[in-house]
């Protein structure tokens, strides 16, 4: 236990976290799914995020799951994310199972929960596939074409732009706090003192950071307004011009057609073999 905490604390250096964050945020690759039309992908995702909740047929769910695994492989999701997803699913279901054993359930309580796991994994794989293969610009354009408020699309691009600056500033303030402060002499029981010291600094850093960010957000908005942002957002013609490059191409239609055929074959199959899995 102590070793684990020690190792975890050893890993936390702001420089390390910064690198990791920037690596994940800006690591967008061009995949097959990433080149598809974002509006179509988002609607495709909506279908796979909602339908599984209403399907209790395990064969259909298994078929959807296989399809999702294929698309996930196609979109080259990083194994780290898949690992986190699996861990979350297993631990959530595992705790429920253990507690239901405690309340007098048996091994038979595992089966309905397996169905739930199948549903949850279809849904999460669909979201990972779509949102990790779309780069931020296409994602925000697709969302705004589907009628999501433009403030969201703006925030998305702004977030990608401002993150390195914010991290740099955060790091500098943190360093100055550490220069002026004093680390606890002993680590304390389970490194509690050190952890408390760092968490306290982490909170205190936000006081100057809030003031700095307030100044920066004023500059940002003023710059936006000089370029006519509010007018552009409220004018449908500007939006049409901006989104005019989105078009359904042959590969989009092929993808839609394949998904539709697959799903429509899956339902009769599931109805005739409902207990294919267990």
């Amino acid at each position: 236990m102590v070793e684990a905490v020690k190792r975890a604390l050893g890993k936390i250096s702001v420089e390390h976290i910064k690198l990791e964050l920037l690596g994940t945020a800006y690591n967008s690759s061009s995949t097959f799914l990433g080149r598809l039309d974002p509006r179509m992908l988002l609607i495709w995702y909506l279908f796979f995020a909602i339908t599984p909740w209403f399907v209790y047929n395990r064969t259909i769910l298994l078929g959807m799951f296989i399809f999702m695994v294929v698309t996930t492989v196609l979109s080259k999701v990083s194994p780290y994310i898949v690992f986190i997803l699996c861990l979350g699913l297993v631990s959530q279901i595992g705790w429920m199972f253990l507690l239901s054993l405690f309340f007098g359930g048996g091994a038979e309580s595992l089966l309905p929960m397996l169905t739930l796991t199948l549903k949850l994994s279809v849904i999460s794989l669909a979201s990972i596939t779509v949102f990790s293969s779309l780069d931020p610009e296409r994602l925000s354009d697709g969302l705004s074409a589907l009628g999501v408020p433009d403030a969201f699309a703006f925030s998305l691009s702004y977030g990608y732009r401002i993150l390195p600056t914010l991290l740099e500033e955060f790091h500098q303030i943190l360093l100055s706090f550490r220069l002026r402060g004093q680390r606890p002499a002993k680590h304390g029981f389970l490194y509690l003192r050190t952890a408390a010291y760092y968490l306290r600094i982490l909170v205190l850093v936000f006081y100057p950071l809030m003031l700095n960010t307030a100044k920066r957000s004023r500059t940002t908005v003023e710059a936006l307004e000089t370029r006519g942002y509010t007018y552009a957002v409220n004018n449908p013609k500007v939006k049409k011009l901006r989104l005019s490059y989105l078009a359904m191409q042959r590969r989009d239609w092929l993808f839609v057609a394949f998904s539709a055929v697959y799903i429509s074959l899956l339902f009769p199959l599931g109805a005739s073999f409902p207990n294919l899995l267990y």
Binding site: L21, T24, A25, Y45, L46, A49, I50, V77, S78, I81, I84, I123, S124, A126, S127, I128, V130, F131, S132, P136, L139, L156, G159, Y160, L163
Partner: peptide, 12 residues
């Protein structure tokens, strides 16, 4: 920041 940029957006 917490979901889309870290690649763990849960969608709906």
């Amino acid at each position: 920041f917490g979901e889309l940029m870290l690649g763990q957006f849960g969608g709906l």
